[in-house]
Design a protein around this nucleic acid. Sequence first.
DNA 1: CTCACTCATATCCGCACGGTATCAATGCGG
DNA 2: CCGCATTGATACCGTGCGGATATGAGTGAG
Lengths: 322, 322
Amino acid sequence: MSELEVRQLRYFVAVAEELHFGRAAERLGMAQPPLSRAIRELERHLGVQLLERTTRQVALTPAGEVFLHDARTALDAVTAAGRRARHAGQPTPSLRVALKADFDAGLLPRILAAFQGEDAALPVELLLGGRGEQVPALRDGRADVALLPVPFDDRDLDVEPLMTEPRLLALAADDPLAARSSLCLADLAGRSLPDGTPADRDGRPPTTARIQTGREQQPPSAPRGRVAGTQPTSLDLSKIFNLIELGSIVMFVPVSVASRHRRLGIAYRTVGDLPPSTLSLAWPQDSRSPAVAAFIRTATAVAKTARMDAQTDAETPQRAMT
Amino acid sequence: MSELEVRQLRYFVAVAEELHFGRAAERLGMAQPPLSRAIRELERHLGVQLLERTTRQVALTPAGEVFLHDARTALDAVTAAGRRARHAGQPTPSLRVALKADFDAGLLPRILAAFQGEDAALPVELLLGGRGEQVPALRDGRADVALLPVPFDDRDLDVEPLMTEPRLLALAADDPLAARSSLCLADLAGRSLPDGTPADRDGRPPTTARIQTGREQQPPSAPRGRVAGTQPTSLDLSKIFNLIELGSIVMFVPVSVASRHRRLGIAYRTVGDLPPSTLSLAWPQDSRSPAVAAFIRTATAVAKTARMDAQTDAETPQRAMT
DNA sequence: CTCACTCATATCCGCACGGTATCAATGCGG
DNA sequence: CCGCATTGATACCGTGCGGATATGAGTGAG
């Protein structure tokens, strides 16, 4: 029993995702026959049939399903090893923090400032990605720690909740709903959210959260912001707000985001049954870096004081903003 | 940037563990020069120096340290993928439960019986291993679920506590300590436990529990029991009890184990400041098997009723056994 | 100073992986 | 019912890479 090789895993994942040897081979930049042979060799090696193929279609066997899943996580682990080693070898290592632009509950500046005072502090590199890019970045070694709202697929990750804040509905100021005195989720049936999902599905964590892979096939041209230093540039949030202003989409945003993006043409409204958003800190379970530990400590401390501040501010009730 | 390969990971781990190219090559069943070349190629590929070598000694760089760690978990993930696929392909899949022989708090028979009534039930295969073999078995796909006392290195694992029970000191009946009216941990200074550690270190979870790898270099001839069906055979506990009887070691055992191993020549004594033992259920975080889910459900249910039974039994106070 | 030890370099070789050409099976349209 | 297009499998060949052997070079011990 020699040993499973990464190449075989990559090949199998490609075929299992495409369910088509030709397309998979093309995606892998190779010809189809050696791919067929490699898969057959893999199956022979495992002694298990992974794919059910006729000359007209390819399907996964149950064993193939579980292998697809495990192969993906194994591939992630391998690339994470490489990436983290590369990063650790840099002459000036940095702490890479992944977050969705602006979705930091307003804590980031304070966290970064406090962090720089720590003994184990490192230069911070911010990775601003879209919704759902933080977790893969943590898993494959591109990021050391992430700020993101729960829930998410937290396999292999440790999580620490930082702060819970209510969310508002951002919509066009001339939207009929903006004139309504009170709203609930049901009123949003049919509306679109920035990521294309219908509005009335949001807010309820999918029941399969712990099961879904969290690593959907991403188009090769997916935009990915990468900003060094502590100068976050708002990736594409401006475009999203443009779309909101035009009335083509609506969006749920934490109040901290709303307060930073007040503009004519956009209205914020409370939605009665919209669950709040909890910003969390996440990092790889096996992180042994003192810088990560220090960041976690400072971030939780900052969040704690922020929560206490919010407590005292609660006397001043907030109105809906226009 | 082609791609990291499993072979390179295996090579590096071998060298990093041996800190000696010659021995590492021997362990890998190959000659030394190609190994040197492979490592140099790996470093060139990563653009990072992993090893500091003079002609007289080899040492890990900081980057090498983190890569060693990540490479190990990546290798585990790869072999787990292979093993789980193999297992999933079996015509009659089974649920593989890892535990240390007899350390089931007496719950196992009831759990197994209840489990067989479940819809998703499968034939159960018990993997009886020594202390600390359960976690690696879960990680590399040899087991689907494990019964083991906390604390342990739970990276990548989900954990559910089942039952906490006090522990007793097992020692030779003619041991001077057996005559003492009361004992505390300090009295055991200098005594040996079955795994060779001094007795006065046990009971306090190592502070590095979440950090240590949990996968020490195991000698290739390490005994590993594998028993099919529901007929657990006591692996080597009898030998341990022999040693206890001879007075060469002492051992902390949960009361459930003690009650199953009363014998002449062995005395059980309470130790005042000996923390109790909590038996837990652990399984890979990404387990999607309905059989595992069913096992978890039944096990927790059985444990709950067992706890309630213990509650009612608490009226009958327990005496120290001889 | 010399020897033993250990990692690096040089060179050769075999094979495994990938490519091209082709076959075989299956579904579909006329 | 018969081609034809589609798609996976088979056959065969060439090459690059991984491994072996031989040797060199640096270094610590006695």
